[in-house]
Design a protein around this nucleic acid. Structure first.
Lengths: 149, 149
DNA sequence: GTGCCTGCAAAAAATTTGCAACACG
DNA sequence: CGTGTTGCAAATTTTTTGCAGGCAC
């Protein structure tokens, strides 16, 4: 199989928003989708540095901002200082480890929430709902147990 | 009436965690609770600067971190660059305006979610659940409507 | 009195900006 | 070919750190 024939649905989506389908934008989205995880701007930058030596961090930031506004990318805040980004388009929640900053997807149907919420506040127009489960991941819990008395 | 007799429940809570009830800590928590809103570290710093001229920003940051770990304060990330903090102890959700960064509380019972969620991930120990309604607030929606064709 | 906290300022980290050259369409 | 985008590096913004003195306990 070919590596990948450049996600045409993304190109279409970009066009729809009157944005150009540049190699950088496609590459950034690709790396997010391929990673199947949650990367920071710098994570993406470092990953792509290899294949795109001239790519700049600021382009990554700008692209992520644009993608986020387009709705192609979800912004996740882990509280560890930097934002993380998620290219998974299907609705899901996130589990965030407060020790190591790890982010994992959580099945939406496990904890469904009314996505049609319209009356959260008078006049407030809900665009998206994010549910975060904050806690300690298995690995961090393990090391914590070791230091318990 | 006196300004306020220094929140003894907070002092108790601090003691429970083997932390000292310093004037700065009480003042920072006070300003969060009194504001009934969501402030950034700098917001708090500026508010208290008047009554506590020697207070430093780094103390605000350190205190907020400590309070957050104690569970006395909830950390909210608006995506506008800086964190915001919430001193409201009762469970509730948050509506965040993606235009202006405004944060408002949303009644928990309006969109209840299982707070006993234990199986979000294998081995993941949930400590808190945060629900964010992202969208556009009434005021920003108003200005957006004006520029519509 | 002891040790946790604070305050100061500089460092580190994260994100944004300006502008000329370049590629998409 | 025109204009949206990129890349570079410096600027800005946000948060952290180290250390000496002070205060809570």
């Amino acid at each position: 199989m070919e590596p990948q024939a450049k996600d045409h649905s993304l190109i279409t989506q970009l066009r729809k928003c009157h944005l150009r389908a540049t190699g950088q934008r496609l590459a950034i989205m690709q790396s997010l989708i391929e990673s199947q995880s949650h990367l920071s701007a710098e994570d993406i930058y470092l990953r792509l540095k290899q294949s795109h030596p001239t790519l700049s961090l600021s382009t990554v930031y700008k692209t992520l901002q644009v993608m986020s506004q387009m709705g192609a990318v979800i912004t996740i805040e882990t509280g560890t200082g930097s934002l993380k980004f998620d290219g998974n388009p299907s609705p899901h929640h996130h589990a965030v480890c407060s020790k190591c900053g790890m982010v994992h997807d959580v099945d939406f149907m496990k904890y469904p929430i009314d996505m049609n919420a319209k009356d959260v506040l008078p006049g407030f127009n809900v665009q998206s709902i994010k549910v975060f489960f904050n806690g300690v991941c298995a690995e961090c819990a393990r090391s914590a147990t070791q230091s318990e008395g």
